[in-house]
Design a protein around this nucleic acid. Structure first.
Lengths: 230, 230
DNA sequence: GGGCGTCGTTGCGCTAGATCAAAGAAGGCA
DNA sequence: TGCCTTCTTTGATCTAGCGCAACGACGCCC
């Protein structure tokens, strides 16, 4: 059942049975309550995690105390491969937003795994590279696109990642405050609220307290991509 | 002399002589004229490069044609380790801004090197991770900081990277138009021009056509870090 | 079920910075 | 030397989105 989880995780998906069981049996299980931190920005990068249950938020905080959300993490997401690099520090906070459980490997275990299963090294490079490319895209977006479009893309991403189908739409299965969306898209909660209200008037979404339901994906995609509004 | 270059490059620095000579002798030399591209966004990632001479620009272009500069590359900079990943595409353009020369390894050569010198795999992960962390910082900056501060940081970075000491300051040894600085910081050439003019009036910098000289690093750092202006 | 804390909405004013327009410099080349 | 291209500066105007403030709504806990 641990190997099932690993299979659903990009990092381990499709590897040899033997590799999976080795990884699974070397893992420890860690429980973190909602609001608590898996690790903090600046801590020595001591563990690699694969989230098993719950949700968590990757964020950075500015010297002035403003927060930026770099990502929202759900089950089967791998985080902290930087622990494979001797002496590295975590560059971000990882905070559980609900009670969560994760498989975890410490540095020593991770090194042993990487040595006996070299494919995991290539996988690590592949994972970091693909996150790097995603971040580049978000950077470009932030540098060149309007708030409305960035918000549209963020919601489409979240729906794709943790959408739960429902009568009349797909709901983001995650408590998600306006403030969270603001920190995720580089704007303010006021602007998020106004934009969501406008979309709700237009019938594109329905929303409530810490909840967003996408009703008309096509129109939101049109906003995100600047297609002609049909 | 090839190994000298590799030594100055983060990726190879401090490795065993044997590894360096193996890498150096496996490399090919490629010349690219100013304005030409080493590779384009979307091309299959076929080669890994270490720039030997000249300068180049890593950039992304939006569907609407707006350009964003992700980095400026000088000698001894390694680019394109993504070529180690089978099937990957380059996510960016790499364009020579002057006549340039680079050492280069194709996919097959790169794989052979990585297999016979496993330390290079860990180095690759380390390099991508550190670039990832840098990009995260720039992302946070873009999301939370004013243009003036972002521009101050960009200039400080450039001075640290390619500064050439001169009478009365340090000049950025790179032809650098206002438009380039704008694309590097996520603003417009008008705002860059106004800001530089203000700084020049204040005696912090001197500037000219495609040229910036930093005269008062302390004051610019104060702007970049929001220290009290002495 | 009533009170309270948290979250969301919306009107209003404001400003950082984009955009437009037009007029200089600086260099390259014939 | 003079023309032409490219880069830069600066004024004027405009606007997206920020920040504040006040109010409203939801949900939780005693």
């Amino acid at each position: 059942m641990r190997t099932d989880l690993l299979c659903r995780c990009h990092y381990f998906a499709g590897l040899a049975e033997e590799t999976l069981t080795a990884a699974a049996s070397a893992a420890q299980l860690r429980h973190v309550s909602g609001g608590e931190f898996f690790f903090r920005q600046g801590d020595p990068a001591s563990h690699f995690y694969v989230l098993a249950e719950g949700h968590a938020r990757l964020s950075q905080i500015t010297p002035e105390g403003r927060q930026v959300i770099m990502g929202l993490i759900g089950p089967a997401h791998a985080i902290g491969i930087i622990a494979a690099i001797p002496g590295a520090l975590y560059p971000l906070d990882l905070q559980a937003t609900q009670d969560s459980q994760a498989l975890t490997w410490n540095q020593r275990t991770l090194h042993m795994l990487l040595e006996s299963h070299p494919v995991l090294g290539l996988r690590a490079l592949r994972m970091v590279s693909s996150r790097f490319v995603e971040l580049q895209d978000r950077y470009r977006e932030l540098a060149t696109e309007r708030v409305e479009r960035r918000l549209a893309r963020a919601i489409l991403r979240l729906v794709a990642q943790v959408g739960r189908p429902e009568a009349g739409g797909v709901t983001i299965a995650l408590p998600l405050a306006r403030q969270d969306l603001a920190e995720l898209t580089g704007t303010t909660l006021y602007t998020v609220s106004r934009t969501l209200s406008a979309w709700e008037d237009a019938g594109i979404i329905r929303s409530g307290r810490e909840r967003v339901t996408l009703c008309d994906p096509a129109r939101l995609t049109a906003i995100a991509e600047d297609l002609p509004t049909a």
